[in-house]
């Protein structure tokens, strides 16, 4: 018989399975945080540790994140793992733009977060100048434990954040921190923030 008829006949005892009631918002947050698929965006050393996190010992699958998607269209979280060069920055921005809302960014390692020890002409001093970053993971490279902690932090943010939040408010231009990094370059080779180029 149908579920409804069972309940009509026997009350709650007619239920074959248990039910949990709650707000839709919570359900959405919960399911988002439990299946936030990362985009494969390995750049340098940190990518190796990111892959190690996917290995059997650290097992990122526990967090519902083992599906590293090659296509940004299918990914929810971008883990920027490694140093971002001036040549890579427009590519990174394009991949971020291709990701579907809602989307989050983890900046993994000091190079992605601030340029790290490579304070020179080639490296973008902080990926937050190009894309908005939700969680920064410190370390050079951050060990898998640090990355897992960053992921846990992100999940907490997802579960406590607003589900309908959109980033268009500030044009997705990052954390609002802009470093003038010209190094004698003309306008043509400057990375234009918040645009696709």
């Amino acid at each position: 018989m149908s579920l409804v008829q069972n309940v009509k006949d026997d009350g709650l005892a007619g239920l074959e399975h248990n039910f949990v009631t709650g707000q839709v918002e919570n359900l959405v947050r919960w399911s988002r945080s439990r299946s936030s698929w990362p985009a494969t965006f390995g750049l340098a050393c940190c990518a190796i540790e990111m892959m190690a996190t996917g290995g059997s010992h650290y097992d990122i699958a526990r967090l519902g994140m083992e599906v590293f998607r090659a296509s940004p269209r299918q990914a929810d979280v971008m883990i920027v793992a490694g140093r971002v060069s001036q040549k890579m920055a427009p590519v990174l921005r394009q991949i971020y733009d291709q990701m579907m809302e809602p989307k989050w960014v983890i900046s993994m390692g000091v190079c992605a977060s601030s340029g790290g020890m490579f304070n020179n002409y080639a490296i973008v001093q902080g990926v937050d100048q190009i894309v908005p970053v939700d969680v920064y993971a410190p370390g050079c490279p951050p060990g898998p434990e640090t990355l897992l902690h960053a992921i846990e932090t992100l999940h907490t943010q997802i579960e406590t954040g607003e589900i309908m939040r959109r980033r268009e408010a500030n044009g997705g231009a990052g954390a609002g921190i802009i470093v003038e990094q010209r190094d004698g370059q003309g306008e043509s080779s400057m990375i234009t923030l918040g645009s696709k180029r």
């Binding site: 060069s85 890579m88 490579f118 490296i123």
Partner: peptide, 30 residues
Amino acid sequence: IGYLHTGMEKTAENLTYLQGPTNVTRMDYA
């Protein structure tokens, strides 16, 4: 190539010989 150009050879000119390995160890990270 060049999407990961880090300018390590330039950075090395500003690091002492004792600091050098910190820089070069990040080249072939495997």
